Amino acid sequence: MRLRTRIRTRRDRDRGQVALEYIGFVAILLLVGLAAIQLGVAAYAANQAGTGARAAARAASLDDPAGVSPQAAVAAAVSGWLHPKPEGSVGAGQATYTVTVEIPSVIPGISDFGTATRTSTMPKLHQD
Rank of each mutant, 00 (worst) to 15 (best):
R2W: 01
T5D: 12
T5G: 10
T5I: 08
T5Q: 13
R6G: 05
I7C: 08
R8E: 07
T9A: 05
R11W: 12
D12E: 08
R15Q: 14
R15E: 12
V18N: 03
A19T: 14
A19R: 06
L20A: 14
L20T: 15
Y22K: 04
I23H: 08
G24Q: 03
A27G: 03
I28W: 02
I28T: 09
L29D: 06
L29Y: 08
L29W: 09
L30N: 02
L30C: 10
L30T: 15
G33P: 02
L34I: 01
A35V: 13
A36Q: 06
A36G: 12
I37N: 03
Q38V: 06
Q38Y: 04
L39K: 00
G40K: 07
G40T: 11
V41C: 08
Y44G: 06
N47Y: 11
A49E: 12
G50T: 06
T51I: 12
R54Q: 15
A57I: 10
A57C: 11
A57Q: 13
A59F: 07
S61P: 05
S61F: 05
L62N: 09
D63M: 13
D64T: 14
D64N: 07
P65M: 11
P65L: 12
G67Y: 07
V68R: 15
S69N: 04
P70R: 00
A72G: 07
A72F: 03
A73K: 11
A73F: 00
A73M: 05
V74I: 06
V74N: 05
V74G: 02
A76E: 15
A76M: 08
S79N: 04
G80H: 03
W81T: 13
W81E: 14
E87Q: 11
E87K: 09
S89W: 02
S89E: 12
V90L: 01
V90H: 01
G91M: 08
A92H: 03
A92E: 10
G93D: 12
Q94M: 08
Q94K: 07
Q94D: 13
A95N: 06
A95Q: 00
T96V: 09
T96C: 03
T96L: 02
T96Y: 00
T98Y: 05
V99P: 02
T100W: 10
E102Y: 06
E102P: 04
E102T: 15
E102A: 14
I103G: 09
P104D: 09
S105I: 02
P108C: 11
I110M: 09
I110D: 07
S111Y: 06
S111K: 13
D112G: 02
F113G: 13
F113Q: 01
T115L: 11
A116K: 07
A116V: 04
A116M: 03
R118V: 05
T119H: 04
T119N: 06
S120T: 09
S120I: 04
S120M: 10
S120Q: 01
T121F: 03
M122A: 14
K124R: 15
K124Q: 14
L125V: 13
L125D: 15
H126Q: 11
Q127N: 09
D128P: 15
